[in-house]
């Protein structure tokens, strides 16, 4: 199933924060609960998907 928008597979995510460091909108945050995306700030640019070492992030721009 393709889910529109920004998606993270929390079972794959290792909470390393690589995605946070490249997010141009400061929309991502590594909290105690894992990676969180502020959907008000995120513009679905997909850079976080490109850096993710484990392929946990999928961004569908046609949301």
């Amino acid at each position: 199933m393709i889910i529109m928008g920004w998606n993270i597979n929390k079972n794959k995510c290792l909470r390393c924060g690589a995605c946070v460091s490249v997010c141009p909108k400061i929309a991502l945050e590594l909290s105690e609960h894992g990676i969180e995306n502020n959907k008000n700030l995120c513009n679905l640019c997909g850079i976080c998907e490109k850096i993710c070492p484990v392929g946990a992030i999928k961004v569908n721009k046609n949301a």
């Binding site: 690589a18 460091s21 490249v22 997010c23 400061i26 850079i47 850096i51 993710c52 070492p53 484990v54």
Partner: peptide, 12 residues
């Protein structure tokens, strides 16, 4: 301090 993709490696 945002990292540009060109200047960051992805490590595993």
């Amino acid at each position: 301090t945002t990292n540009k993709l060109i200047n960051i490696d992805s490590g595993y």
